[in-house]
Design a protein around this nucleic acid. Sequence first.
DNA 1: CGCTGCCTTGACCATGATCAACGCACGTGG
DNA 2: CCACGTGCGTTGATCATGGTCAAGGCAGCG
Lengths: 244, 244
Amino acid sequence: MTTLGSHPNHLHLLRKLATTTRLSPEDTAALLATPVTLRTVEPDKDVVAQGEHATNCTLILDGFACRYMLAADGRRQILSFHVPGDVPDIQSLRVESMDHGLCALRRMTVATIAHPAMEALMAAHPALEDGFWRETLVDAAIYRQWLFGLGRRPADVRLAHLVSETAKRFDLVGLTRQAAALPLKQIQLADALGLSPVHVNRVLQELRGRGLVGPGRAAIEVRDAGGLAEFGEFDAGYLRLRAA
Amino acid sequence: MTTLGSHPNHLHLLRKLATTTRLSPEDTAALLATPVTLRTVEPDKDVVAQGEHATNCTLILDGFACRYMLAADGRRQILSFHVPGDVPDIQSLRVESMDHGLCALRRMTVATIAHPAMEALMAAHPALEDGFWRETLVDAAIYRQWLFGLGRRPADVRLAHLVSETAKRFDLVGLTRQAAALPLKQIQLADALGLSPVHVNRVLQELRGRGLVGPGRAAIEVRDAGGLAEFGEFDAGYLRLRAA
DNA sequence: CGCTGCCTTGACCATGATCAACGCACGTGG
DNA sequence: CCACGTGCGTTGATCATGGTCAAGGCAGCG
Protein backbone atom coordinates (compact mmCIF):
# COMPACT_ATOMS: atom_id res chain seq x y z
CA MET A 1 0.00 0.00 0.00
CA THR A 2 1.38 3.35 -1.06
CA THR A 3 0.05 6.55 -2.63
CA LEU A 4 -0.51 7.24 -6.29
CA GLY A 5 1.87 10.19 -6.21
CA SER A 6 4.78 7.99 -5.20
CA HIS A 7 4.89 6.30 -8.61
CA PRO A 8 6.32 8.50 -11.34
CA ASN A 9 3.87 7.29 -13.97
CA HIS A 10 0.97 9.10 -12.30
CA LEU A 11 1.94 11.83 -14.75
CA HIS A 12 0.20 10.02 -17.60
CA LEU A 13 -3.12 10.24 -15.79
CA LEU A 14 -2.58 13.90 -14.95
CA ARG A 15 -1.70 14.68 -18.54
CA LYS A 16 -4.78 12.95 -19.82
CA LEU A 17 -7.12 14.60 -17.32
CA ALA A 18 -5.62 17.94 -18.31
CA THR A 19 -6.80 17.46 -21.90
CA THR A 20 -10.45 17.62 -20.78
CA THR A 21 -10.62 19.11 -17.30
CA ARG A 22 -9.04 21.89 -15.31
CA LEU A 23 -7.88 20.66 -11.90
CA SER A 24 -7.03 22.88 -8.94
CA PRO A 25 -3.83 22.22 -6.97
CA GLU A 26 -6.02 20.76 -4.21
CA ASP A 27 -7.66 18.35 -6.64
CA THR A 28 -4.28 17.22 -7.87
CA ALA A 29 -2.91 16.86 -4.37
CA ALA A 30 -5.88 14.75 -3.28
CA LEU A 31 -5.53 12.55 -6.33
CA LEU A 32 -1.83 11.97 -5.67
CA ALA A 33 -2.52 11.21 -2.00
CA THR A 34 -4.95 8.44 -2.92
CA PRO A 35 -3.91 5.11 -1.43
CA VAL A 36 -3.17 2.51 -4.07
CA THR A 37 -1.73 -0.98 -4.30
CA LEU A 38 0.83 -1.61 -7.03
CA ARG A 39 0.64 -4.83 -8.96
CA THR A 40 2.27 -6.42 -11.97
CA VAL A 41 0.18 -8.27 -14.54
CA GLU A 42 1.78 -10.68 -16.98
CA PRO A 43 0.84 -10.67 -20.68
CA ASP A 44 -2.42 -12.47 -21.50
CA LYS A 45 -3.50 -12.45 -17.87
CA ASP A 46 -6.83 -10.91 -16.92
CA VAL A 47 -6.86 -7.83 -14.75
CA VAL A 48 -10.59 -8.34 -14.29
CA ALA A 49 -12.47 -11.30 -15.68
CA GLN A 50 -15.80 -11.20 -17.48
CA GLY A 51 -18.68 -11.72 -15.02
CA GLU A 52 -16.60 -10.75 -12.04
CA HIS A 53 -17.81 -8.22 -9.49
CA ALA A 54 -14.96 -5.76 -9.10
CA THR A 55 -14.24 -3.98 -5.80
CA ASN A 56 -11.34 -1.91 -7.11
CA CYS A 57 -10.59 0.38 -10.00
CA THR A 58 -7.42 -0.16 -11.98
CA LEU A 59 -5.15 2.64 -13.16
CA ILE A 60 -2.65 1.58 -15.78
CA LEU A 61 0.82 2.88 -14.92
CA ASP A 62 2.81 1.00 -17.51
CA GLY A 63 2.03 -1.44 -20.30
CA PHE A 64 -0.92 -1.97 -22.57
CA ALA A 65 -4.32 -3.63 -22.07
CA CYS A 66 -7.59 -4.36 -23.80
CA ARG A 67 -11.23 -4.95 -23.06
CA TYR A 68 -12.55 -8.06 -24.79
CA MET A 69 -15.42 -10.47 -25.10
CA LEU A 70 -15.22 -14.13 -26.07
CA ALA A 71 -17.56 -15.95 -28.42
CA ALA A 72 -18.81 -19.41 -27.57
CA ASP A 73 -16.40 -20.90 -30.13
CA GLY A 74 -13.44 -19.13 -28.55
CA ARG A 75 -13.11 -16.30 -31.05
CA ARG A 76 -12.24 -13.04 -29.38
CA GLN A 77 -13.36 -9.52 -30.07
CA ILE A 78 -11.25 -6.76 -28.59
CA LEU A 79 -13.49 -3.83 -27.66
CA SER A 80 -10.90 -1.19 -26.79
CA PHE A 81 -7.23 -0.69 -26.08
CA HIS A 82 -5.92 1.02 -22.98
CA VAL A 83 -2.73 2.96 -22.44
CA PRO A 84 -1.00 4.22 -19.29
CA GLY A 85 -3.15 6.84 -17.59
CA ASP A 86 -6.40 4.99 -18.38
CA VAL A 87 -8.75 3.60 -15.73
CA PRO A 88 -10.49 1.07 -17.94
CA ASP A 89 -12.77 -0.37 -15.27
CA ILE A 90 -14.05 2.83 -13.72
CA GLN A 91 -17.57 1.77 -14.65
CA SER A 92 -17.21 -1.08 -12.13
CA LEU A 93 -18.05 1.59 -9.52
CA ARG A 94 -21.64 1.57 -10.73
CA VAL A 95 -22.07 -1.82 -12.31
CA GLU A 96 -22.98 -5.10 -10.70
CA SER A 97 -20.75 -7.37 -12.78
CA MET A 98 -18.37 -6.98 -15.69
CA ASP A 99 -19.94 -7.65 -19.09
CA HIS A 100 -16.42 -8.03 -20.56
CA GLY A 101 -12.90 -8.92 -19.50
CA LEU A 102 -9.87 -6.68 -19.09
CA CYS A 103 -6.64 -8.30 -20.18
CA ALA A 104 -2.97 -7.33 -20.28
CA LEU A 105 -1.49 -7.35 -23.79
CA ARG A 106 2.00 -6.58 -22.55
CA ARG A 107 3.49 -6.84 -19.09
CA MET A 108 1.77 -4.17 -17.03
CA THR A 109 2.18 -2.24 -13.84
CA VAL A 110 -1.16 -1.15 -12.44
CA ALA A 111 -2.32 0.81 -9.42
CA THR A 112 -5.34 -0.72 -7.75
CA ILE A 113 -7.66 1.77 -6.06
CA ALA A 114 -10.34 0.46 -3.70
CA HIS A 115 -13.86 1.53 -4.65
CA PRO A 116 -14.49 3.36 -1.35
CA ALA A 117 -11.31 5.40 -1.82
CA MET A 118 -12.39 6.27 -5.35
CA GLU A 119 -15.89 7.24 -4.20
CA ALA A 120 -14.49 9.44 -1.43
CA LEU A 121 -12.10 11.14 -3.82
CA MET A 122 -14.82 11.92 -6.32
CA ALA A 123 -17.32 13.07 -3.67
CA ALA A 124 -14.80 15.49 -2.20
CA HIS A 125 -13.53 16.74 -5.55
CA PRO A 126 -16.25 17.38 -8.12
CA ALA A 127 -13.65 18.35 -10.70
CA LEU A 128 -12.16 14.88 -10.48
CA GLU A 129 -15.59 13.30 -10.71
CA ASP A 130 -16.19 15.42 -13.75
CA GLY A 131 -12.84 14.44 -15.23
CA PHE A 132 -13.44 10.73 -14.83
CA TRP A 133 -16.92 11.09 -16.24
CA ARG A 134 -15.47 12.80 -19.29
CA GLU A 135 -13.11 9.88 -19.70
CA THR A 136 -16.07 7.57 -20.06
CA LEU A 137 -17.44 9.93 -22.71
CA VAL A 138 -14.17 9.72 -24.64
CA ASP A 139 -14.46 5.96 -24.28
CA ALA A 140 -17.92 6.11 -25.83
CA ALA A 141 -16.63 8.28 -28.68
CA ILE A 142 -13.95 5.69 -29.38
CA TYR A 143 -16.60 2.95 -29.37
CA ARG A 144 -18.53 4.92 -31.97
CA GLN A 145 -15.48 5.20 -34.20
CA TRP A 146 -14.86 1.47 -33.96
CA LEU A 147 -18.52 0.74 -34.68
CA PHE A 148 -18.39 2.94 -37.72
CA GLY A 149 -15.20 1.27 -38.87
CA LEU A 150 -16.44 -2.29 -38.36
CA GLY A 151 -19.67 -1.51 -40.13
CA ARG A 152 -18.61 0.68 -42.99
CA ARG A 153 -14.85 0.82 -43.51
CA PRO A 154 -12.84 -1.68 -45.56
CA ALA A 155 -10.05 -3.56 -43.82
CA ASP A 156 -7.15 -1.37 -44.94
CA VAL A 157 -8.75 1.92 -43.91
CA ARG A 158 -9.90 0.34 -40.66
CA LEU A 159 -6.39 -0.79 -39.81
CA ALA A 160 -4.89 2.60 -40.66
CA HIS A 161 -7.49 4.28 -38.47
CA LEU A 162 -6.82 1.97 -35.56
CA VAL A 163 -3.08 2.46 -35.74
CA SER A 164 -3.48 6.23 -35.99
CA GLU A 165 -5.85 6.33 -33.05
CA THR A 166 -3.72 4.13 -30.84
CA ALA A 167 -0.55 6.07 -31.63
CA LYS A 168 -2.36 9.31 -30.84
CA ARG A 169 -3.50 7.97 -27.50
CA PHE A 170 0.07 7.12 -26.51
CA ASP A 171 1.01 10.60 -27.65
CA LEU A 172 -1.65 12.28 -25.53
CA VAL A 173 -0.24 10.79 -22.33
CA GLY A 174 3.31 11.68 -23.29
CA LEU A 175 4.52 8.27 -24.50
CA THR A 176 5.97 9.43 -27.81
CA ARG A 177 8.34 6.52 -28.13
CA GLN A 178 5.56 3.93 -27.89
CA ALA A 179 3.39 6.00 -30.21
CA ALA A 180 6.03 5.53 -32.89
CA ALA A 181 6.37 1.78 -32.37
CA LEU A 182 3.12 0.26 -31.18
CA PRO A 183 3.49 -2.95 -29.16
CA LEU A 184 0.76 -4.75 -31.12
CA LYS A 185 0.80 -8.28 -32.47
CA GLN A 186 -1.04 -9.08 -35.67
CA ILE A 187 -3.38 -11.44 -33.81
CA GLN A 188 -4.33 -8.63 -31.47
CA LEU A 189 -5.01 -6.33 -34.39
CA ALA A 190 -7.13 -9.04 -35.98
CA ASP A 191 -9.19 -9.45 -32.80
CA ALA A 192 -9.72 -5.70 -32.60
CA LEU A 193 -10.59 -5.22 -36.27
CA GLY A 194 -12.90 -8.21 -36.63
CA LEU A 195 -10.52 -9.73 -39.21
CA SER A 196 -8.52 -12.93 -39.48
CA PRO A 197 -4.82 -12.81 -38.62
CA VAL A 198 -3.80 -13.66 -42.16
CA HIS A 199 -5.83 -10.84 -43.63
CA VAL A 200 -4.26 -8.41 -41.16
CA ASN A 201 -0.90 -9.60 -42.40
CA ARG A 202 -1.84 -8.87 -45.98
CA VAL A 203 -3.30 -5.47 -45.23
CA LEU A 204 -0.21 -4.57 -43.22
CA GLN A 205 1.89 -5.36 -46.24
CA GLU A 206 -0.25 -3.01 -48.27
CA LEU A 207 0.35 -0.23 -45.74
CA ARG A 208 4.06 -1.01 -45.75
CA GLY A 209 4.02 -0.80 -49.52
CA ARG A 210 2.46 2.63 -49.29
CA GLY A 211 5.25 3.70 -46.94
CA LEU A 212 2.84 4.37 -44.09
CA VAL A 213 4.21 1.84 -41.59
CA GLY A 214 7.66 0.32 -41.23
CA PRO A 215 8.69 -3.24 -42.10
CA GLY A 216 9.68 -4.29 -38.57
CA ARG A 217 7.98 -7.38 -37.19
CA ALA A 218 8.38 -6.66 -33.47
CA ALA A 219 6.06 -3.63 -33.41
CA ILE A 220 3.97 -1.52 -35.73
CA GLU A 221 6.29 1.32 -36.61
CA VAL A 222 4.47 4.46 -37.75
CA ARG A 223 6.44 5.82 -40.69
CA ASP A 224 4.19 8.55 -41.99
CA ALA A 225 1.70 9.61 -39.34
CA GLY A 226 0.06 12.20 -41.57
CA GLY A 227 -0.38 9.87 -44.49
CA LEU A 228 -1.64 7.12 -42.23
CA ALA A 229 -4.23 9.43 -40.69
CA GLU A 230 -5.36 10.58 -44.10
CA PHE A 231 -5.61 7.05 -45.48
CA GLY A 232 -7.39 5.93 -42.32
CA GLU A 233 -9.77 8.93 -42.29
CA PHE A 234 -8.54 9.66 -38.80
CA ASP A 235 -9.30 12.97 -37.11
CA ALA A 236 -8.22 13.13 -33.48
CA GLY A 237 -11.01 15.50 -32.47
CA TYR A 238 -13.04 12.84 -30.72
CA LEU A 239 -10.14 12.01 -28.37
CA ARG A 240 -9.97 15.52 -26.99
CA LEU A 241 -13.22 16.80 -25.63
CA ARG A 242 -12.52 20.47 -25.11
CA ALA A 243 -12.05 21.64 -21.53
CA ALA A 244 -15.07 23.37 -19.98
CA MET B 1 -42.57 25.96 -22.12
CA THR B 2 -44.10 23.53 -19.66
CA THR B 3 -42.89 20.98 -17.11
CA LEU B 4 -41.83 17.43 -17.77
CA GLY B 5 -44.50 16.07 -15.43
CA SER B 6 -47.28 17.57 -17.52
CA HIS B 7 -46.67 15.09 -20.36
CA PRO B 8 -47.89 11.58 -19.57
CA ASN B 9 -44.93 9.91 -21.28
CA HIS B 10 -42.54 11.04 -18.55
CA LEU B 11 -43.38 7.63 -17.11
CA HIS B 12 -41.05 5.91 -19.56
CA LEU B 13 -38.09 7.82 -18.17
CA LEU B 14 -39.13 7.09 -14.59
CA ARG B 15 -39.51 3.43 -15.36
CA LYS B 16 -36.10 3.25 -16.94
CA LEU B 17 -34.36 5.15 -14.13
CA ALA B 18 -36.04 2.77 -11.67
CA THR B 19 -34.26 -0.19 -13.28
CA THR B 20 -30.87 1.14 -12.15
CA THR B 21 -31.41 3.76 -9.46
CA ARG B 22 -33.57 4.33 -6.42
CA LEU B 23 -35.12 7.79 -6.46
CA SER B 24 -36.65 9.54 -3.44
CA PRO B 25 -40.05 11.27 -3.81
CA GLU B 26 -38.17 14.60 -3.78
CA ASP B 27 -35.92 13.48 -6.63
CA THR B 28 -38.93 12.45 -8.65
CA ALA B 29 -40.79 15.65 -7.88
CA ALA B 30 -37.83 17.78 -8.94
CA LEU B 31 -37.46 15.83 -12.14
CA LEU B 32 -41.12 16.28 -13.01
CA ALA B 33 -40.96 20.00 -12.22
CA THR B 34 -38.12 20.50 -14.71
CA PRO B 35 -39.03 23.06 -17.36
CA VAL B 36 -39.05 21.58 -20.84
CA THR B 37 -40.07 22.59 -24.34
CA LEU B 38 -42.10 20.08 -26.33
CA ARG B 39 -41.27 19.58 -29.97
CA THR B 40 -42.24 17.28 -32.80
CA VAL B 41 -39.58 15.88 -35.12
CA GLU B 42 -40.51 14.45 -38.50
CA PRO B 43 -39.02 11.16 -39.74
CA ASP B 44 -35.50 11.46 -41.18
CA LYS B 45 -35.01 14.87 -39.63
CA ASP B 46 -32.06 15.49 -37.35
CA VAL B 47 -32.69 16.27 -33.70
CA VAL B 48 -29.03 17.28 -33.43
CA ALA B 49 -26.66 17.34 -36.37
CA GLN B 50 -23.13 16.03 -36.43
CA GLY B 51 -20.62 18.75 -35.52
CA GLU B 52 -23.24 20.90 -33.84
CA HIS B 53 -22.72 22.35 -30.38
CA ALA B 54 -25.85 21.46 -28.45
CA THR B 55 -27.26 23.69 -25.71
CA ASN B 56 -30.12 21.37 -24.76
CA CYS B 57 -30.63 17.78 -23.85
CA THR B 58 -33.38 15.83 -25.58
CA LEU B 59 -35.71 13.43 -23.82
CA ILE B 60 -37.65 11.19 -26.17
CA LEU B 61 -41.32 11.09 -25.18
CA ASP B 62 -42.67 9.25 -28.17
CA GLY B 63 -41.21 7.74 -31.34
CA PHE B 64 -37.90 6.20 -32.21
CA ALA B 65 -34.47 7.66 -33.01
CA CYS B 66 -30.91 6.71 -33.81
CA ARG B 67 -27.39 7.99 -33.50
CA TYR B 68 -25.51 7.77 -36.77
CA MET B 69 -22.38 8.71 -38.66
CA LEU B 70 -22.04 9.24 -42.39
CA ALA B 71 -19.17 8.06 -44.56
CA ALA B 72 -17.71 10.31 -47.24
CA ASP B 73 -19.52 8.29 -49.93
CA GLY B 74 -22.88 8.75 -48.19
CA ARG B 75 -23.10 5.34 -46.59
CA ARG B 76 -24.56 5.49 -43.11
CA GLN B 77 -23.70 3.60 -39.97
CA ILE B 78 -26.31 3.66 -37.23
CA LEU B 79 -24.57 3.59 -33.85
CA SER B 80 -27.52 3.09 -31.52
CA PHE B 81 -31.30 3.14 -31.37
CA HIS B 82 -33.25 5.17 -28.85
CA VAL B 83 -36.67 4.56 -27.38
CA PRO B 84 -38.99 6.78 -25.31
CA GLY B 85 -37.41 7.52 -21.94
CA ASP B 86 -33.91 7.87 -23.42
CA VAL B 87 -31.86 11.08 -23.33
CA PRO B 88 -29.55 10.24 -26.20
CA ASP B 89 -27.58 13.47 -26.17
CA ILE B 90 -26.90 13.78 -22.46
CA GLN B 91 -23.19 13.71 -23.23
CA SER B 92 -23.64 17.08 -24.94
CA LEU B 93 -23.51 18.52 -21.41
CA ARG B 94 -19.80 17.79 -21.31
CA VAL B 95 -18.77 17.72 -24.93
CA GLU B 96 -17.77 20.57 -27.20
CA SER B 97 -19.40 19.32 -30.38
CA MET B 98 -21.32 16.26 -31.48
CA ASP B 99 -19.18 13.57 -33.13
CA HIS B 100 -22.36 12.02 -34.56
CA GLY B 101 -25.90 12.97 -35.53
CA LEU B 102 -29.17 12.15 -33.81
CA CYS B 103 -32.00 11.45 -36.20
CA ALA B 104 -35.69 10.61 -35.94
CA LEU B 105 -36.58 7.25 -37.49
CA ARG B 106 -40.28 7.73 -36.87
CA ARG B 107 -42.29 10.83 -36.04
CA MET B 108 -41.19 11.83 -32.56
CA THR B 109 -42.28 13.94 -29.66
CA VAL B 110 -39.33 15.15 -27.62
CA ALA B 111 -38.89 17.27 -24.53
CA THR B 112 -36.03 19.71 -24.83
CA ILE B 113 -34.27 20.53 -21.56
CA ALA B 114 -31.87 23.47 -21.46
CA HIS B 115 -28.38 22.55 -20.28
CA PRO B 116 -28.47 24.90 -17.27
CA ALA B 117 -31.73 23.35 -16.08
CA MET B 118 -30.20 19.89 -16.45
CA GLU B 119 -27.06 20.94 -14.58
CA ALA B 120 -29.09 22.45 -11.76
CA LEU B 121 -31.24 19.35 -11.49
CA MET B 122 -28.26 17.05 -11.26
CA ALA B 123 -26.34 19.28 -8.84
CA ALA B 124 -29.29 19.42 -6.43
CA HIS B 125 -30.15 15.73 -6.77
CA PRO B 126 -27.14 13.42 -6.72
CA ALA B 127 -29.40 10.40 -7.20
CA LEU B 128 -30.52 11.80 -10.54
CA GLU B 129 -26.95 12.57 -11.54
CA ASP B 130 -26.10 9.03 -10.63
CA GLY B 131 -29.07 7.71 -12.61
CA PHE B 132 -28.16 9.60 -15.75
CA TRP B 133 -24.54 8.55 -15.42
CA ARG B 134 -25.67 4.95 -15.20
CA GLU B 135 -27.61 5.44 -18.39
CA THR B 136 -24.40 6.34 -20.18
CA LEU B 137 -22.89 3.12 -18.79
CA VAL B 138 -25.79 1.10 -20.22
CA ASP B 139 -25.16 2.92 -23.48
CA ALA B 140 -21.55 1.82 -23.38
CA ALA B 141 -22.58 -1.78 -22.66
CA ILE B 142 -24.83 -1.68 -25.74
CA TYR B 143 -21.95 -0.31 -27.81
CA ARG B 144 -19.84 -3.26 -26.68
CA GLN B 145 -22.52 -5.73 -27.73
CA TRP B 146 -22.79 -4.12 -31.14
CA LEU B 147 -19.00 -4.10 -31.52
CA PHE B 148 -18.88 -7.76 -30.66
CA GLY B 149 -21.66 -8.48 -33.12
CA LEU B 150 -20.15 -6.50 -35.98
CA GLY B 151 -16.77 -8.08 -35.43
CA ARG B 152 -17.61 -11.67 -34.66
CA ARG B 153 -21.24 -12.58 -35.32
CA PRO B 154 -22.62 -13.68 -38.69
CA ALA B 155 -25.44 -11.63 -40.19
CA ASP B 156 -28.34 -13.83 -39.07
CA VAL B 157 -27.27 -14.02 -35.43
CA ARG B 158 -26.47 -10.31 -35.46
CA LEU B 159 -29.94 -9.46 -36.73
CA ALA B 160 -31.64 -11.71 -34.18
CA HIS B 161 -29.61 -10.11 -31.42
CA LEU B 162 -30.49 -6.60 -32.53
CA VAL B 163 -34.18 -7.36 -32.75
CA SER B 164 -34.15 -9.03 -29.34
CA GLU B 165 -32.29 -6.13 -27.78
CA THR B 166 -34.50 -3.46 -29.29
CA ALA B 167 -37.68 -5.27 -28.31
CA LYS B 168 -36.38 -5.65 -24.76
CA ARG B 169 -35.63 -1.95 -24.57
CA PHE B 170 -39.20 -1.07 -25.52
CA ASP B 171 -40.32 -3.58 -22.92
CA LEU B 172 -38.20 -2.02 -20.17
CA VAL B 173 -39.95 1.34 -20.55
CA GLY B 174 -43.38 -0.26 -20.65
CA LEU B 175 -44.02 -0.16 -24.41
CA THR B 176 -45.04 -3.78 -24.83
CA ARG B 177 -47.00 -3.18 -27.99
CA GLN B 178 -44.05 -1.65 -29.83
CA ALA B 179 -41.78 -4.36 -28.46
CA ALA B 180 -43.90 -6.91 -30.30
CA ALA B 181 -43.92 -4.99 -33.60
CA LEU B 182 -40.76 -2.96 -34.02
CA PRO B 183 -41.09 0.11 -36.24
CA LEU B 184 -37.92 -0.69 -38.21
CA LYS B 185 -37.39 -0.55 -41.96
CA GLN B 186 -34.99 -2.95 -43.59
CA ILE B 187 -32.74 -0.09 -44.70
CA GLN B 188 -32.46 1.04 -41.10
CA LEU B 189 -31.58 -2.47 -39.98
CA ALA B 190 -28.97 -2.62 -42.71
CA ASP B 191 -27.39 0.65 -41.57
CA ALA B 192 -27.29 -0.58 -38.00
CA LEU B 193 -25.91 -4.03 -38.79
CA GLY B 194 -23.28 -2.94 -41.30
CA LEU B 195 -25.07 -4.96 -44.02
CA SER B 196 -26.62 -4.13 -47.37
CA PRO B 197 -30.42 -3.79 -47.52
CA VAL B 198 -30.77 -6.81 -49.79
CA HIS B 199 -28.85 -9.03 -47.44
CA VAL B 200 -31.03 -7.90 -44.54
CA ASN B 201 -34.03 -8.91 -46.61
CA ARG B 202 -32.63 -12.39 -47.13
CA VAL B 203 -31.65 -12.88 -43.52
CA LEU B 204 -35.08 -11.70 -42.42
CA GLN B 205 -36.61 -14.37 -44.60
CA GLU B 206 -34.43 -16.93 -42.90
CA LEU B 207 -35.70 -15.78 -39.49
CA ARG B 208 -39.27 -15.86 -40.79
CA GLY B 209 -38.68 -19.38 -42.00
CA ARG B 210 -37.54 -20.37 -38.53
CA GLY B 211 -40.76 -18.93 -37.09
CA LEU B 212 -38.90 -16.34 -35.06
CA VAL B 213 -40.38 -13.21 -36.65
CA GLY B 214 -43.68 -12.65 -38.44
CA PRO B 215 -44.16 -12.15 -42.17
CA GLY B 216 -45.57 -8.61 -41.98
CA ARG B 217 -43.76 -5.96 -44.01
CA ALA B 218 -44.82 -2.88 -42.03
CA ALA B 219 -42.90 -3.78 -38.88
CA ILE B 220 -40.70 -6.53 -37.48
CA GLU B 221 -43.13 -8.68 -35.57
CA VAL B 222 -41.49 -10.76 -32.86
CA ARG B 223 -43.12 -14.20 -33.03
CA ASP B 224 -40.99 -16.23 -30.67
CA ALA B 225 -39.05 -13.96 -28.32
CA GLY B 226 -37.38 -16.84 -26.53
CA GLY B 227 -36.26 -18.55 -29.69
CA LEU B 228 -35.08 -15.27 -31.15
CA ALA B 229 -33.02 -14.52 -28.06
CA GLU B 230 -31.50 -17.96 -28.11
CA PHE B 231 -30.68 -17.81 -31.80
CA GLY B 232 -29.29 -14.28 -31.37
CA GLU B 233 -27.26 -15.20 -28.26
CA PHE B 234 -29.11 -12.42 -26.46
CA ASP B 235 -28.97 -12.10 -22.67
CA ALA B 236 -30.61 -8.94 -21.34
CA GLY B 237 -28.27 -8.68 -18.35
CA TYR B 238 -26.28 -5.82 -19.82
CA LEU B 239 -29.40 -3.63 -20.16
CA ARG B 240 -30.14 -3.75 -16.47
CA LEU B 241 -27.31 -2.65 -14.26
CA ARG B 242 -28.49 -3.69 -10.82
CA ALA B 243 -29.63 -0.90 -8.50
CA ALA B 244 -27.10 0.15 -5.86
C1' DC C 1 -55.14 5.31 -61.91
C1' DG C 2 -50.79 5.90 -61.61
C1' DC C 3 -46.95 7.43 -58.32
C1' DT C 4 -43.79 6.50 -54.82
C1' DG C 5 -41.43 4.05 -51.43
C1' DC C 6 -40.13 -0.10 -49.86
C1' DC C 7 -39.69 -5.01 -50.19
C1' DT C 8 -38.27 -8.96 -53.02
C1' DT C 9 -35.68 -11.75 -56.38
C1' DG C 10 -31.92 -13.27 -59.36
C1' DA C 11 -27.26 -13.20 -61.35
C1' DC C 12 -22.78 -12.18 -60.64
C1' DC C 13 -18.88 -10.38 -58.03
C1' DA C 14 -15.35 -9.35 -54.25
C1' DT C 15 -13.72 -8.87 -49.78
C1' DG C 16 -12.01 -11.34 -46.55
C1' DA C 17 -12.09 -16.36 -44.23
C1' DT C 18 -10.08 -20.82 -43.94
C1' DC C 19 -6.66 -24.36 -44.38
C1' DA C 20 -2.14 -25.71 -44.68
C1' DA C 21 2.57 -25.15 -45.10
C1' DC C 22 6.81 -22.79 -44.47
C1' DG C 23 10.16 -19.30 -42.65
C1' DC C 24 12.37 -16.64 -39.37
C1' DA C 25 14.00 -14.96 -34.92
C1' DC C 26 14.75 -15.80 -30.40
C1' DG C 27 15.57 -18.48 -26.34
C1' DT C 28 17.10 -22.70 -24.00
C1' DG C 29 19.72 -26.62 -23.06
C1' DG C 30 23.35 -29.84 -24.39
C1' DC D 1 28.41 -22.58 -29.91
C1' DC D 2 25.20 -25.12 -32.10
C1' DA D 3 20.57 -27.93 -32.19
C1' DC D 4 16.17 -27.67 -31.37
C1' DG D 5 11.64 -25.85 -30.06
C1' DT D 6 8.29 -22.34 -29.96
C1' DG D 7 5.71 -18.43 -31.25
C1' DC D 8 4.71 -15.44 -34.64
C1' DG D 9 4.77 -13.73 -39.25
C1' DT D 10 4.28 -14.92 -44.24
C1' DT D 11 2.49 -17.19 -48.42
C1' DG D 12 -0.51 -19.67 -51.60
C1' DA D 13 -4.81 -22.00 -52.88
C1' DT D 14 -9.49 -22.34 -52.32
C1' DC D 15 -13.91 -21.11 -50.34
C1' DA D 16 -18.03 -18.39 -48.62
C1' DT D 17 -20.35 -14.64 -46.73
C1' DG D 18 -22.24 -10.87 -48.00
C1' DG D 19 -22.07 -6.82 -51.69
C1' DT D 20 -23.60 -4.87 -56.07
C1' DC D 21 -26.50 -4.24 -59.94
C1' DA D 22 -30.69 -4.54 -62.06
C1' DA D 23 -35.30 -5.67 -62.53
C1' DG D 24 -39.85 -6.48 -60.81
C1' DG D 25 -43.75 -6.53 -57.21
C1' DC D 26 -46.89 -4.71 -53.97
C1' DA D 27 -49.38 -1.52 -50.98
C1' DG D 28 -50.80 2.93 -49.75
C1' DC D 29 -52.01 7.48 -51.32
C1' DG D 30 -53.14 11.56 -53.89
